[in-house]
């Protein structure tokens, strides 16, 4: 296998790395860059714990080849806060008791971030459909859905 040099923007900073073709983005983030927010949950795209944003949209790092993100922009949960200022979603998760064991939380927040970027005023049903690929075994989802909805803008005319 041939190692390749890739350059990406990671949480706002340019990063150049040499990777083997079969290295997964998730393992590069965790094992090489020590960004351990994205988690291994199932390895096959069924649980959402490894969700990161690639070019602004949610993607599963456990199924993404690191070599294939050359030139792209990746944001992980560690890159969501602006300095000491948490993202409103992070604040909302804290205020709504949406965190229990916390293992699904980073992936859940990244998915929710993408939802609100796409659709700033989703309905409850739209929130549920959007996060249906992110499994939470603790909360039963209600507190998570409430947290996300609390960050939604009021629909115009509503």
């Amino acid at each position: 296998m041939t190692e390749t040099s890739i350059t990406l923007t990671l949480n706002g900073k340019k990063k150049t790395l040499r990777v083997r073709p079969n290295e997964l983005l998730l393992n590069v983030l965790r094992d090489r860059l020590f960004l351990t927010g994205a988690k291994y949950g199932c390895g096959i795209g069924e649980c959402g714990a490894c969700t990161v944003l690639i070019d602004g949209r949610p993607a599963l790092a456990c199924l993404t080849l690191a070599v294939a993100i050359d030139g792209k922009e990746v944001v992980t949960v560690e890159g969501l806060a602006r300095g000491d200022e948490l993202d409103p979603l992070q604040e909302a998760f804290l205020d709504h008791g949406a965190v229990q064991c916390g293992f699904c939380t980073p992936g859940m927040i990244m998915t929710a971030r993408s939802l609100l970027d796409e659709n700033p005023s989703p309905s409850e049903e739209e929130v549920r459909e959007y996060i249906r690929g992110n499994i939470c075994r603790c909360t039963g989802y209600t507190s998570i859905v409430s947290a996300i909805l609390s960050c939604a803008q009021e629909k115009e005319g509503a």
Partner: peptide, 23 residues
């Protein structure tokens, strides 16, 4: 009374360390 849980900040920022995060 309701309060933010103390480990919440680490968990929402991805900085909580679980066993699999120990290097």
């Amino acid at each position: 009374r309701r309060a933010r849980r103390k480990d919440g900040i680490a968990k929402v920022t991805g900085r909580e360390i679980y066993s699999s995060d120990v290097y």
